[in-house]
Every structure is written in structure tokens, then in C-alpha cells.
Write a protein that binds this DNA or RNA. Structure first.
Lengths: 230, 230
DNA sequence: CATTATAATTGAAATTTTTCAATGTAATTT
DNA sequence: AAATTACATTGAAAAATTTCAATTATAATG
């Protein structure tokens, strides 16, 4: 975990102001004067694949903007079982729920090399008082999260396994910028769909045999969207 | 569908101000001066069980506060299949997502006799500009929705059917104010859990035979929480 | 109250999914 | 490059779930 301080007590958030992906993040609507209010350091942190950003029930003092990479949100059942409830990517906010409760609802684990900006709760609170634009940015994130959660229920937890694996791969493919996408491990596919690792493997192996799914370097893959959509 | 106008162009929202469940609804934090800004009518509407409040993809100009009763949110898959993604009760907001997009993400159907307050989007927009308290009230609803959605994924879409039916009944029971709760039809249980009506029936019938579930008048029921928790 | 319609239950067979154990493959370390 | 480790695949049997068809119970209606 490598940390670079983006702003600090005297420099404020000038680097946020000029951030290459600012249009994608929470601060897109802010003005220069808004940035001048920020006096807490906003750190830019790099994570290796498989790193735990925070754990379920952790006390939280930060939220995290994803600059690049993918993060899975995992939730545990009382019996120790778990389910992956979302996968978040660039521009999305980790730990948004902790702004109100100070507690993380999920465990957040990086899937690939990830860069996050760590924003203190106090920065958000301050902006909420003085920079009304931040509200819409936050609500937009809530809305996106809820849409994704509903999609998880409707598309990924309903129907036969083959259908659900198809829907997941299509989703990953269509959300990707190029024609390849991050291919989760079979275990993760299982935990996304609520099925066993073996069942996930049987279906993905079948798709590969059919030529509908091609595995590439670096945990990436490519699908024939037309074939899977049937 | 019986409508009573709560406020109107000249009376404003004085009845909202004195609403018996105001502490539970979106307007809990508002001051007298806030209510004085409201000049659009807020109607109080009664629905019979099984009424459609709005449909998926409907153009929306209102959100709805639940004064009493239960409402299910249904989402359709492209193939015509459907899933119930949430059940909402007193104090919760229907159509919150339409505040940003003007479009309903779900079909909303009443489960029992329901009373709703229909609030024009314009009222919320106005309050967002002048009454900062409304933001927290809205965010609290987003957060509750997302918690419920995650719970639906983790608890209700994971595991064997018997476990999932147990979890659902426990959830309904624990969210209820008294020791009875609204018992969904077996078809609805199926659409909540993503299983067939028959499977839902087989398990609930078994619970009844075991004496763990008792059906009462009026689509209500009671469970032995200790037995189901095993 | 009798009738009709709707919802719930049940059982047996078919299908799907999991389980368990073994093997194959790929990536990483020594 | 060999050894080790982790991940992926496969097959057969067991278990869970769906399907389909029939029956029973409950609610709604004239």
C-alpha cells in the first residue's frame, strides 16, 4: 500500500482541482473557492490486487473515490457465508454509507491494481454545509449504488445458473471501456451469483468450449455478446 | 382510489405540519417557515390492496410517502420474468429515484389497504434549495433502501430455500410493530426469493405443520422466532 | 348459502444444482 | 527449470428444486 498525499494542511486540495478524472468524481461540480475550503489531507493510495481497503463493521473516518481499478464489496451472513453485493469502478465511492453511520456495511477488497483517493468524512461534511453541489454528486452515487443492487437482485439472482452467468459476463463486458473486461475468479462468480465455485466453473468452461468466452492475459476476457444474449 | 387534498394553492401544507406521523416522514426536520413555502397541493390518497401506484418506466411527477400499509416494488426482466426487490412500509418513500431521472425504476403495488401522501417533485426541489434539512431526510431514505437491497441479496437470495423462507419470515416478523405480520402470498414469497410458488408453498406448509408458523385473519401470521432462527 | 374464482397444497417425475473427490492447468517461488 | 501453490475443470452420485398435474382450502360473489 503506497500513499501519496494529494493535499495537505497548507496546500489544500489543489491537486484535486486539477485531477485528471475530476469530471468523474464527487468533486466535479466544485469551484475553486470550494477547494480552498479543504484543509485536510486527501491521500492518493495504491493497492495491490486482493488488498482489503476496509472491513465490514469497521469504524470509518474516510470515504474513497476509485481513481482506477475495481473493488468488490462483500457482505457476510451471520453463519459465515458471504456474498459479493457489488463491484465498483472508476469514479465510484467506497464507504458512502459510513458518512452517516461511521460504520462500514461491507468489506471492500481490490480485484486488480487499484488507486483510491481517501477523503476524510470531515471534508464531505464541510462541503455539504457550504457547497450545495456536493449533494447532487452524493445522491447520484446513492442512486447508482441502488440501481446496481436492484440489478444484482433482478438479473443476477434470478433464473438458471447458465442465464445468470451470461448476464454477469454481459454486464462486465458492457460496462467495460474496451472490448475486454476483468474476468472474476470462479469463486468470485459463485459469490456474486450465490452459486458454488464448481457450478460457476462448469458454465464458464462450457462457454469457452462454445467459443463464446475467450480468456486473455491478466485476468481479462472477451465474450461474444450476441451468443450470450440468447 | 380515494383522494383528499391535504394542502392546496392557498392553504399551503398546513396539514403536513400537523401530520400525525410527521416524525416518520420526509418533512420531520422542517420548520413552520419551510411549510409556508409549499404552495402545491399534497394529496392524501387511499388505495385498495393490489392497486398499482405507478408502473416501471412511468414518467413521474410525484414521490409518495407511505402513511400506512405496505407496498411492494417489482422489477421486470427483459424476458418478462419479475422479481420483488423491496417491501416498503410506513414513513418510506416511493419513487425516490424519479427525483433525478423523472422515471420510475419499479412497478409499485399495494399489498394491503394503503394510504399515501403524494408529493410533487417541485415541492422537493423547492425545499432542497431553501431547506437544507431535507437533504439528510432524503439521504436517510437512500441509505435505508440500499441497506434493504443489500439484505435482499445477502439474506434472501443466498442459501437453501428453507433458510431463505425462514429469513424472510423472521424479517417480516421483526419489522412488525406487534407480534403478527403481513404474510405475503406464496407467489409473492416466490418472487421475493427467486423461487417457484410451489417451493414457497412447500416450505411454508411445512412450517405450519411444525407449529412454527400460524396463519391468522387478514393475511397476517405469527412465527416462533426461536424455531425459525435455527 | 351456494357458487365461483382464486390461492394453497401435495406428490411424483424430471431437471438442476451441489457435493465430493480427482485431475489438469497456470502462475509463482526456489 | 523444477517444485510448489493456487486456481480451474471434470465426472458421478447425492441432494435440492422445479415442473406438471391434481386436489384441497379459502375468499369473493351473486
Amino acid at each position: 500500500m503506497k500513499t501519496t498525499q494529494i493535499g495537505n494542511a497548507w496546500k489544500g486540495a489543489e491537486r484535486c482541482e486539477n485531477c485528471a478524472i475530476r469530471h468523474l468524481v464527487l468533486f466535479s461540480d466544485l469551484q475553486k473557492s470550494d477547494f480552498d475550503q479543504i484543509h485536510q489531507p486527501i491521500d492518493d493510495i495504491s493497492y495491490k490486487p486482493g488488498s482489503i481497503v476496509y472491513g465490514q463493521s469497521d469504524h470509518m473516518e474516510f470515504v474513497y473515490t476509485i481513481r482506477s481499478g475495481l473493488v468488490k464489496l462483500v457482505q457476510y451472513l451471520p453463519d459465515g457465508n458471504l456474498r459479493i453485493v457489488r463491484i465498483l469502478g472508476q469514479g465510484e465511492l467506497l464507504g458512502i454509507e459510513s458518512l452517516n453511520t461511521q460504520v462500514a456495511e461491507h468489506k471492500a477488497i481490490t480485484l486488480d491494481p487499484v488507486q483510491l483517493c481517501r477523503i476524510p468524512h470531515s471534508v464531505i461534511t464541510l462541503l455539504q454545509q457550504n457547497s450545495p453541489g456536493i449533494h447532487n454528486a452524493l445522491i447520484a452515487r446513492w442512486q447508482k449504488m441502488l440501481n446496481m443492487a436492484d440489478l444484482w437482485i433482478t438479473q443476477l439472482s434470478t433464473g438458471k445458473i447458465r442465464t445468470r452467468v451470461s448476464r454477469l459476463l454481459l454486464l462486465l463486458s458492457k460496462n467495460s471501456l474496451d472490448d475486454t473486461f476483468y474476468m472474476p475468479t470462479r469463486e468470485d462468480i459463485g459469490n456474486i451469483l450465490g452459486i458454488t465455485t464448481e457450478s460457476a466453473s462448469k458454465v464458464t468452461a462450457e462457454f469457452k468450449r462454445n467459443g463464446w468466452l475467450k480468456l486473455l492475459e491478466n485476468n481479462h476476457a472477451q465474450v461474444d455478446e450476441n451468443k450470450l444474449e440468447i
